[in-house]
Design a binder for these strands. Structure first.
Length: 921
DNA sequence: CCCGTCATCATGGCT
DNA sequence: TGATGACGGG
């Protein structure tokens, strides 16, 4: 960090072109060789530069409107990232600013990486000069490291993750003499997080909130927590935003430096900003106002404090906010609008539950008067059917800015959105698997397909099924690399070495591996540290030299202290990867796992190796630790062709040719808890989530609902999601079969099978929204209002929300479904046709696998779950054997991995199947 | 300190 | 149902 040339002086580029001389030719000398090169890419005055070619008029406007506040409402698949990156390229190549004068913030590291990469493609290495492109938090750290002392910290403060925070809070709660069962540390950590999301410090939280925890001692506890962080020279994630906000408010000179520095501000995913982020942006974006407009001052202050029970702080100071502070204004009539460009989509705001305020984007024009609002509605991703379905669904929300996506490439051949019904989640998984295989047979790549679920527990049935049929899949967003125990332990060792004062890390590993240091000893170290006002590591060293301890712990402690002293002495002389290895070896940590008999020990050792390997990219141990604190994700291996399984939340921003959306049932989607806690706005957020799901698909979209789902171990009958009823008939095709229905491909299980008398969806249950047209789907009569046999009799019962459809509450199908309910519950496979026998066969094999499936955990590889052989026994087959498979016919074995065979089928192509499914020919 | 037993509690998961 | 965490006996 220290060597970073962008890090030191603030005003090193003050000669840079100003935005008010925007159209002036680039300075002779050019900002740098790199930027100059970027400029050289610019063409003559009349021809648009290359990078503008291929933009549609709206996109181009969004790129070229560089001055003043701009809100780009970018619908799904409208080229949002392209606009952002091109805009940066445009600013650079027009010489409007140096790379270091652009502040570009994203939410996730992934988004930041992508933006950096794509800007790099446009402007070359100039992107390397963009030190202020990053996440809110990474930029926050950068700011805070520079001004740490203004927040009572040293610049080498550590960043605590959630785990550290919870442990710390637990200590505090216990120190207060409170019961940590009644007052769960986790809950309080969440409360603090919530307050920090709103920009509230201990003195600013609402009285009610303060009282709600720990017998009314919430505020004290919060304050104690902050004090403790300061003592530890540490901060949590929220502080990475809050401290800079405080600093900006209290040190106008500092803020003014950044005002002068940042000529352009760009914000990605603006709809996801929380109040703290909003304040942070406002502070940076809002230039001092002319003293001549006192009224707008007041208004502005009000807005500044919005969200705000933090009036106390505001009123306790002479000036309500730095935005109003009469700073020198470069001697010119400075506009008070900065060149801020926020890009977002109110319809994709799905993070309200963690503090995002959709309101920020809805109020943009009020916050930034005179803002240009540009709508990107031309969608390059999805078919007209998908867009039509999504548009109709999202139109049920109120309080939108309003956008309608359209495509100018409608194709009559495009498939409609498919809605399928299944009996239960197993059948759903089976049928989705069938459909995937059908697509695969049609030469669709698994990489182009994704299953997007509402809740992660839904993943299980798909994983189970895909393992059974040997279908490759990967789970995105599973347990994260840096959150694993072994990684966190190793990191704790490193942290103590790099920063001896890191008590939380020290505590984590004093007794790892076990060396007989129990609670009592640790408490003693704690007390000594407190008494002497030194870090625990130091206290431990002192204690080991004293007679305070019994011989055993004393010796152990002495060794620990000596170890750390030795490692710390190596810090500057030994390459950090080597040192890391030494630490893990000498501490006995690797041995601990080597001696561990449990099944996951080898994997953990593997992870540790991976950890060391990943350190190589970083200059120093310290740089690496910082990276990990901020970037908790690790890359996934993309090489394998596999279906992606992930939650709807983690799918935002992605796209797939073919998308499966299972679990569209009331209670699951929309999720009951979202409804309970969020009421109407909760429902609207769920609907936006549905919208996000639909708009991930480029071409093929399959929605599923089941009539029975096991929730917390209990089978519950469910009713179709109201969202299904909010889809427009014109774009939807209902697949009555329940099994796979993929044009042209026979469903091996027989499409009609599902409908054979087992259609009793919610029949026995009152649907609070009135009956759904899907209620009777799957019944023998196939009664679906949207399929030509309109239920005229029910036409009068339009629903308030999804009222575009008649319901089928009184249909024969519904009645029959009701009748069949009991029978259906018994799950009578025997009624199935010949094809179903095959499935029974599967079932038998399934149970056969039950025993062998114990090592199922073994499929976790670097955060990626991969369908993998689960049996230890080698297959009875050998490569080259000719075999027969019920479904795929004859083929030759091309590879064997345990009992998983890769077979080149004569007709069906290459498949991976388990050996139980084939017979030798 | 280790390990078995019991109770609890189940969205989303970024930084 | 099943995973996780706290507790108490060995």
């Amino acid at each position: 960090m220290a060597g970073d040339p962008h890090d030191m002086p603030f005003f090193d580029e003050d000669d840079a072109p100003r935005f008010d001389s925007a159209r002036a030719p680039a300075p002779q000398s050019g900002p740098s060789g790199i930027a100059a090169r970027a400029m050289a890419a610019r063409q003559g005055h009349n021809n648009p530069p290359d990078y503008l070619k291929g933009l549609n008029p709206e996109q181009r406007q969004a790129v070229e409107t560089t001055e003043g506040p701009v809100l780009v409402l970018a619908g799904a698949g409208t080229g949002k990232t392209r606009v952002l990156t091109t805009r940066i390229a445009h600013i650079l190549s027009q010489g409007l600013a140096f790379p270091s004068q652009i502040l570009a913030v994203t939410f996730t590291n992934k988004a930041a990486r992508e933006m950096k990469q794509r800007v790099g493609i446009l402007v070359g290495e100039a992107v390397e000069g963009m030190p202020w492109l990053g996440t809110f938090h990474s930029i926050g750290v950068k700011l805070l490291r520079r001004h740490a002392e203004l927040a009572g910290l040293r610049s080498d403060f550590t960043i605590l993750d959630t785990d550290d925070v919870i442990r710390l809070i637990k200590q505090l709660i216990q120190a207060e003499g409170l019961d940590d069962k009644r007052w769960a540390p986790r809950t309080f950590a969440q409360m603090i997080d919530g307050w920090k999301n709103k920009g509230l410090g201990p003195d600013e939280i609402p009285e009610g909130d303060a009282r709600a925890f720990a017998n009314g001692r919430g505020r004290e506890l919060y304050r104690a927590y902050q004090d403790r962080l300061t003592t530890l020279n540490a901060c949590d994630f929220g502080d990475l935003l809050l401290h800079p906000i405080r600093i900006f408010r209290q040190h106008h000179d500092v803020l003014a430096e950044y005002h002068r520095k940042f000529k352009y501000i760009l914000v990605d995913e603006y709809q996801d900003t929380n109040t703290a982020q909003y304040m942070w942006l406002r502070l940076l974006a809002q230039r001092p106002k002319q003293p001549s407009s006192p009224r707008s001052r007041g208004e502005d202050a009000g807005r500044q404090m919005r969200g705000g029970a933090n009036v106390s702080e505001a009123s306790s100071r002479p000036s309500p906010g730095p935005a109003d502070h009469p700073l020198p204004v470069n001697g010119e009539r400075e506009r008070n609008l900065v060149n801020i460009c926020c890009v977002g989509d109110d319809d994709q705001s799905i993070y309200g539950w963690r503090g995002a305020e959709v309101d920020n984007i809805l109020r943009f024009e009020k916050d930034f008067p005179g803002a240009t609002v540009i709508r990107l509605e031309r969608n390059y991703r999805s078919t007209a059917h998908i867009l039509g379905a999504a548009a109709h669904l999202i139109a049920h929300n109120e309080g939108r800015l309003g956008k309608t996506l359209f495509t100018d490439r409608p194709d009559p051949e495009d498939p409609k959105v498919n809605v399928h019904a299944a009996w239960d989640s197993d059948e759903e998984a089976r049928a989705v698997g069938e459909t995937i295989e059908a697509y695969q047979r049609d030469r669709h790549k698994l990489n182009d397909m994704a299953i997007l679920v509402r809740a992660s527990f839904q993943m299980r049935s798909f994983e189970d099924r895909f393992i059974e049929i040997g279908l490759n899949y990967r789970v995105i967003g599973g347990p994260r690399f840096y959150e694993r125990q072994e990684i966190r332990d190793a990191m704790a060792f490193f942290r103590v070495v790099a920063q001896g004062a890191d008590d939380l890390a020290f505590e984590r590993i004093v007794n790892v591996p076990k060396r007989g240091l129990g609670d009592a000893t640790i408490r003693q170290i704690h007390d000594t540290a407190r008494a002497l006002r030194v870090p625990m590591l130091e206290a431990a060293g002192k204690l080991a030299e004293s007679d305070e301890l019994k011989p055993k712990p004393r010796a152990a402690l002495r060794e620990v202290a000596a170890n750390f002293a030795r490692w710390q002495s190596l810090l500057d002389t030994t390459p950090h990867t080597e040192l890391a290895e030494t630490i893990l070896e000498e501490s006995g940590y690797t041995d601990m796992w080597k001696n561990d008999r449990s099944a996951d020990a080898p994997g953990r050792l593997e992870n540790l190796k991976e950890l060391i390997r990943s350190m190589e990219e970083y200059e120093s141990l310290r740089a690496f630790l910082e990276h990990v604190a901020l970037v908790m994700d690790a890359e996934q291996n993309e090489g394998l062709d596999a279906v992606s399984i992930m939650t709807l939340h983690s799918a935002k921003g992605l796209e797939f040719e073919t998308v499966f959306l299972p679990g569209w049932e009331e209670g699951l989607f929309p999720h009951q808890r979202a409804l309970d806690e969020g009421g109407r706005s909760g429902l609207e957020e769920e609907r936006r989530l549905a919208y996000v799901g639909l708009t991930r698909a480029k071409k093929n979209l399959h929605l599923w609902f089941v009539s029975n789902r096991r929730i917390h171990g209990l089978w519950q009958s469910t009713i179709p999601s109201r969202f299904l009823d909010e889809l427009p008939e014109a774009h939807v095709e209902v697949q009555e079969g329940g099994g796979s229905n993929y044009g042209g491909y026979g469903n091996p299980y027989g499409g009609g099978a599902f409908a054979s008398g087992r259609g009793g969806f919610s029949a026995g249950r009152q649907n609070p929204y009135g009956a759904s047209r899907f209620d009777s789907l799957g019944s023998p009569s196939g009664g679906f209002a949207g399929r030509g046999d309109q239920k005229g009799g029910a036409a009068g019962q339009e629903r308030g929300q999804g009222g575009a459809f008649s319901n089928s509450y009184a249909t024969p199908g519904w009645a029959r479904a009701q009748q069949n309910r009991t029978e259906a519950t018994s799950r009578n496979w025997g009624t199935r046709s010949g094809h179903q026998v095959e499935r029974i066969g599967y079932g038998e094999v399934d149970s056969g696998y039950g025993a062998g499936r114990t090592s199922v955990k073994g499929r976790t590889i670097e955060g990626e779950l991969v369908a993998k052989s689960v049996a230890d026994q080698p297959s009875a087959f050998k490569v080259g054997d000719r075999v027969f498979h019920q479904k795929f016919g004859n083929g030759n074995i091309s590879a064997i991995d345990g009992n998983k065979l890769t077979i080149d089928f004569d007709r069906a192509g290459q498949k991976k199947v388990l050996d139980g499914f084939v017979t030798a020919v």
